Simulated assay, not measured.
Amino acid sequence: MTPEKLLRQIDFIKEIDKLKYIQRKTKLFNSDRYENDAEHSWHLALMAMILFEHADESVDLLKVIKMVLIHDIVEIDAGDTFIYDTQKAHSNTEEERLAANRIFGLLPESQAEDLINIWEEFEAGETQEAKFARAMDRLEPLLQNSSNNGGTWNEPGVNYNKVYAKKSVIKAGANVLWEYAEGLIDDGVKKGVLKKD
């Protein structure tokens, strides 16, 4: 007989497969294909592994990797909110909280509690790990848009001020990466793919 704990873990593993179907607004590097949430999370985990030496302060890399791998799981239920959406705030909503409780709640209690705590820490953005994880989350689509002739910067209502404000989160976790990101934003303006109103 299969232990109940294992069955719950397998149920969770099956459920999170749905992350592969959540489309994002950004496209893969130099591509017309939209990225999905699973690809995004995987990419952030590898970015964290490669770039963590640039964090402003020492970070627990395993915790950062956990954060970036699970931060968007709630979008299975809540959907992906475009970072520049003017109708819906790109923040921790009640909808996401319900999703976190349901999806992580599929796991045995101690694992569910651990992942909910990590997700909440990421969302709060106050610890060094959360600041660095959020820097990765904001840097990746910036790199994509830079490689795609502006990408989502071409969406209605998106301009330099909005991009700068949203991407400045990078500065809180990795100043060196923020300096690089600022250069990409400025290049977008110079190339005419990011409007400065």
Rank of each mutant, 00 (worst) to 15 (best):
F82I: 03
E95S: 11
S168L: 07
G173Y: 04
G105Q: 08
A135Y: 02
F82L: 01
K20H: 14
E95C: 10
N161F: 09
E129A: 15
N30Y: 06
D17S: 09
W119Q: 10
L19T: 14
L19P: 13
R134E: 15
M1S: 08
K190C: 02
L51W: 15
L184K: 07
E179N: 04
A172P: 01
E39Y: 07
K191R: 15
E57V: 14
M47P: 01
N36S: 14
Q111H: 00
M47V: 00
K18M: 03
N36C: 09
R33L: 06
S41W: 07
L194D: 01
W178Y: 00
V176M: 01
D11C: 06
N145Y: 00
E15P: 06
L143E: 05
F12I: 03
E109V: 11
T86L: 10
V74D: 12
P108N: 04
Y164N: 08
H40A: 06
L69W: 02
E75Y: 11
A135T: 05
I185E: 11
K27D: 02
E120V: 05
D85A: 14
S147C: 02
D32E: 07
L98F: 12
K27G: 00
E123N: 15
V74P: 11
P3E: 13
N149V: 10
S41T: 13
E15A: 15
I116C: 10
T86R: 08
I73H: 08
F52M: 10
N101K: 13
E4W: 01
T2Y: 05
E179K: 07
A172H: 11
D85Y: 05
F12D: 03
L28C: 06
F12C: 05
L7T: 14
L61K: 07
H43M: 10
H90A: 11
E129N: 15
D37F: 13
Q9R: 07
E4P: 03
E113T: 13
T81N: 10
K162D: 04
E96F: 03
Y164E: 08
G105C: 12
A174H: 04
K162H: 02
N101E: 12
S110N: 09
D60E: 15
E182F: 06
A112V: 02
A133G: 07
L142A: 02
I103L: 13
R8H: 09
S147A: 08
I170D: 01
D60M: 14
F12K: 07
E35S: 03
S147E: 00
E129T: 12
A181L: 06
W153I: 08
D77I: 01
E182R: 11
T152F: 04
R33E: 06
V74N: 15
